[in-house]
Design a binder for these strands. Structure first.
Length: 275
DNA sequence: AGACAAGCCTGTACGC
DNA sequence: TGCGTACAGGCTTGTC
């Protein structure tokens, strides 16, 4: 499940390996993947373009083109970006292929087809990609004071706010649970019940967990949905303190981790460490 | 064989 | 009434 650390890992790989490459051919065969526009539009906007940079907003990967357009990629649950030789065998569920001038290909592979690829004019972002324009601040950039104001100004559950891309952009189910555990706060604490000190701990946990996850090249779970640009797994899953560890001992206190289900999603936490 | 994994949007219902 | 909030449903396929 690619979240911000996984997307950032792919972005950094991409940045090192495709800057300056020209797109000579485009195969956009997965209509659902390019649903925001169409296969024809995606192809026409990409052919002949040279990649000039990369960036990221939340879980959106941004590939910057020489005509100032952006190719936006969202991996959602099962999307993968793979860079390989143009003659490498095609994986199942390959929906978009960009052939570069050096014969390599960037491929978007996505079994569940929740992910998407779209080419937009960033000057028209609120029109062409309103969801991207509406994203909240980056979790590694937001100041403690601003974070405090947002979190403590609402009654909502802590985890719901961490997951809300308008509040802070890039956190998903795995890191939300890990951050709450590191901050020693229950997932269901109401924002306005937290002290300044507790939100400070949350801010610190958010930045340290996400930074450590980026350093470890992200989390690859048993289903191996997330791999990096070269198809390799990340390393942060071995350091998860709570996620997918129901019944296993808490790494801090030794008591069993509990799994609860709310709104159709699993939450893992330690009832002793998190209050 | 069916539960489960989950991001994100939409629609709906609820409580204060 | 209205706002903020919570959650089910929809979309999807591979895995256990």
């Amino acid at each position: 499940m690619p979240e911000m650390p996984e997307v950032e890992t792919v972005r950094r790989d991409l940045h090192r390996r495709v800057i300056g490459r020209r797109i000579d051919a485009v195969h956009a065969t997965g209509a659902r993947t390019v649903r925001r526009t169409s296969p024809t539009i995606v192809r026409d906007r990409l052919i002949g373009r040279t990649i000039t940079g990369t960036s990221r907003r939340g879980k959106y990967l941004i590939v910057e083109l020489d005509d100032d357009q952006w190719m936006l990629v969202h991996l959602r649950m099962s999307g993968q970006l793979i860079l390989c030789d143009g003659d490498a065998p095609l994986a199942n569920h390959t929906h978009v292929r960009l052939r570069f001038d050096d014969e390599r290909e960037l491929r978007f592979v996505d079994p569940r087809t929740f992910g998407e690829v779209v080419v937009v004019d960033p000057a028209n972002l609120p029109i062409e990609a309103p969801d991207v324009a509406a994203l909240g601040p980056e979790p590694l950039e937001i100041e403690r004071r601003d974070f405090d104001r947002i979190i403590r100004g609402r009654r909502r559950m802590l985890k719901a706010m961490l997951l809300d891309q308008h509040v802070v952009a890039g956190i998903g189910n795995i890191y939300a649970d890990e951050i709450c555990h590191a901050a020693r706060l229950r997932y269901d604490r109401a924002g306005d019940s937290l002290s300044t000190r507790q939100v400070g701990a949350l801010h610190n946990a958010m930045q340290s967990i996400l930074s450590a996850a980026i350093d470890a090249r992200g989390s690859t779970l048993r289903d191996a949905q997330y791999v990096d640009l070269g198809g390799l797994a990340g390393g942060y899953q071995d350091r998860h303190a709570v996620y997918d560890r129901a019944g296993l001992p808490c790494k801090r206190c030794g008591r069993p981790i509990v799994r609860v289900v709310g709104a159709g999603r699993s939450t893992y936490f330690c009832p002793r460490c998190q209050r």
